[in-house]
Amino acid sequence: MILQLFIKGLSLGAVYALIAIGFSLLWQTSRTINFAQGEFVTLPAFLMVLLALVFKIPFALALILTIIISGLLLGYLMNRVLDRPLIEKGVLPLVVATIALGFMIRDSLIISWTPEALYFPSLVPKKPLHLGDATFSAVDLWNIFVATLIISGLHLFVKRTKTGKALQAVSQNRDVANILGINASKMILLAFLINAVIAGFSSILIAPIYMVKYDMGVELGLKAFYAAIIGGFNQTRGALLGGLLVGLIETFTAAYISTHYKGAFVLIVLMVVIVFKPEGLLGEKELYEYR
């Protein structure tokens, strides 16, 4: 049973980690706390249903189109329209703007499409697999695999390429990066694009399990938020650790301690982390204060 819960928890946590990484990337580069992060997952999921199930476009093509559209809409457009005018006004206006954006996306989906949950087929068979007394499905392994792939890809990009290093420089200190001749606003745009694309991928992982629904992002966005803070807001590996921890804590506490207070355990961990190690488990203290 423990193994089964472990695999399930990891699979869930891997998706949380994916969403959390984009989240902390936005924070690092532009000091945007994206409360609409969950809707960044919802929208691509609806796009996939629209393209693949309604218009019946071949799956791979639909996937590519979805990633491109959500990159344009949630990456480029969000950066240009919302982030740029507000970025210099401090953290709070952006927080409120993203909350409003979340409300807007959810209600637009209800009005323009449906308030109901939609079925989404799984890419890999949901047939049960057995390992000892544990039963899980190929979907779980697939989720862990894809998430690992994307996260290590991102890690390599940031650490090994020139653009990646510039991105890192901006996230460590925007002003210094500017002095060094790095175009900070370009890098911020890049962060937005990366976030939108990763969120798009994670929506394809989570949609077959959670179904596609206008409010599917609310819980996901919160979990990603928890994950980013627990792991460390300024580190990619922090989001990874945080995501996996949130997934595991949730699964194990619900199974062994209490289903009533399932939601509370993660929060208690979160509060303890905030009070005693605000930079997160793997985070580093931020020396550079933004207004």
Binding site: M1, L12, L220, T251, K262
Partner: peptide
């Protein structure tokens, strides 16, 4: 959304 913990509890 997720019922893993609940179902594990029932299964055990």
């Amino acid at each position: 959304m997720d019922f893993t913990g609940e179902l594990a509890r029932a299964k055990s």
